[in-house]
Every structure is written in C-alpha cells, then in structure tokens.
C-alpha cells in the first residue's frame, strides 16, 4: 500500500482568505496558497486562530478541496467554540497561519471501482476533495450525506457534482430522507450492492455503525477521526485513539500522525 501521506512533510505558510460565505451553519472559506502543498484527501491543516491566550493552540481543520492549478484551498468551518468561531468570522484579505498538510489521508488505491463515501454533518468536508480525486481516476463515488437538520448538511452541492449519485438524510426530515444516514443506508441495502470500499468522516457513532455494515459485507471501511490536538504532527501524543488490537505495550494510535484516516477495524470507536 502506498503511504497516503505527503512526501517531504509539512510546512508553515500563510494563506490569504479571499472568500467567506455561509454553507448551512458552517462557513465556506476559500484561500489562496502560494506554495504547492499538494495535499492527499483526508489530510488537515493546523490553523493559528489568533485571539490571544484564550485560544492558544492551533485548530485542526480538514482540507475540503484543493485546486493545485490555481492554488485555491477550500475549508469548511463549523463555529463550535472560540477558535473555530474566530476562523469562521475571518475577513477576506486576512492571512491565515497554516501548518500542513498533516496526517495520513485516504488511500485512493484502496477505494476500488465503486467507492461509497459517507459524511455526517461537517464531516463531509474532506469528502469533497476525496470525491474529486476519485472522479479524476474514473471512479466517481456513491455518496451518502447526513446531518441533524438541513443547515447541518455540508458539501452537498460539490459532492452532488462529483458523485455518481447522492443520498441525503436528516434526522428531522428537513432535507432528504428522515433519520440518521446510517439508518437510511440500512433501509436501502441495495444501494451498497457492489460497493468496493466505504470511506467516511463524521461522528464516532456513525463510524461505528459503518464499521459493522462493512464487516457484514466484507468490504474495507476507512474513517477520518476528529480529535482535539496540540501539536498535530505526532510529537505530543495528545490525540490518542485506542487500538482494536494492542501490541507489545502499545495501546493507542495518534489521530494526527497515524491518522486521521484509519481502517475502521484498527480503532475502537466507542
């Protein structure tokens, strides 16, 4: 298997914000990057958010899309706290302090001809760039997107354009089918016929349900985990996730450096 992380390691760079518009409850940020950062889908950036001492650490944010020819970086940011609130309210023209790209992303070679993408809420963000790269390889995915309600859905427009089909679900029924996206998938088992891999990002509960579904069908499933981080590069061991099969005194993996994308069978999601 190819190592789905970027060669040469991360760099520190400033990205100029050129566009900041709402996408449901999230914000869609477009930034101009001078460096050829060439990220792998699923990789993330550690962003300095300013704000002084109250937001001392960087914030890990997935790369939602990357246009290398134009040096355009897209981020989807859901303001959930002080740090993401500052990012979401950044004004066009400001320079965002970036460290990255970081982590191990999705292995495109493992997707097979019929990849299924599953996004929960803001977890849809990294799937946009993943779908783009899969479509470029002639394997556009079948995409399932879920959220609690319509404003919670992210990436719908881009993923609709990049996928062979999109199934939407909201728990309150305000958009698409009613229920959790994994329930909708279970109600329509035919949709997964022939699927060669599941690649997902969203809440741990959603990933746990997908792990079970993939196991029953005997197909590989990969999920991108979200976790609070300090360094983002693997040094501090702050973003631990328990391993399914501990080995020789090692019980945890680092979300930032061993992930954020893991084969779901390798991690405990409860």
């Amino acid at each position: 298997m190819l190592d789905p992380s970027r060669e040469g390691g991360p760099e520190v760079f400033g990205a100029r914000l050129v566009h900041n518009a709402p996408e449901g409850r999230a914000r869609r940020l477009l930034l101009v990057v001078e460096e050829d950062i060439a990220p792998v889908p699923g990789q993330f950036l550690q962003l300095g958010v300013g704000g002084g001492g109250e937001t001392y650490l960087r914030r890990p944010i997935s790369i939602a899309d990357w246009d290398g020819a134009r040096g355009l970086l897209e981020l989807l940011v859901l303001p959930v706290g002080k740090g993401t609130g500052l990012l979401a309210s950044a004004q066009p023209g400001s320079i965002i302090d970036c460290l990255g790209p970081l982590g191990r992303g999705f292995d495109l070679d493992a997707a097979g001809p019929i990849p299924v993408l599953v996004g929960g809420g803001i977890g849809a963000a990294p799937l946009v760039y993943l779908a783009r790269r899969l479509a470029e390889r002639g394997c556009p995915p079948l995409t399932f997107l879920g959220a609690s309600d319509h404003p919670g859905l992210a990436g719908e427009k881009s993923l609709t354009a990049l996928s062979r089909g999109v199934v939407l679900a909201t728990e309150d029924g305000s958009r698409g089918a009613t229920g959790m996206i994994t329930e909708v998938m279970l109600r329509n088992p035919g949709e997964l016929e022939g699927a060669t891999a599941i690649m997902a990002c969203g809440p741990r509960g959603m990933l746990a349900a997908l792990k079970g579904m993939a196991r029953e069908r005997g197909i590989p499933a990969y999920g991108s985990l979200e976790e609070h981080m300090a360094c983002g590069v693997g040094a501090c061991l702050g973003c631990a996730v328990p391993m399914s099969r501990p080995e020789s005194g090692k019980s945890y993996l680092r979300v930032c450096a061993d992930g954020p994308v893991f084969p779901l069978e390798e991690v405990i999601l409860a």
Binding site: H228, A230, C236, G238, A240, G249, Y252
Partner: peptide, 11 residues
C-alpha cells in the same frame, strides 16, 4: 507504557 486513555489534553 501505554499511557492514559483519552481525552488527554485540553486547552
């Protein structure tokens, strides 16, 4: 040593 269970850090 395996270390402690998460969460391990907080700002």
């Amino acid at each position: 040593w395996p270390g402690n269970p998460p969460p391990r850090i907080v700002e």
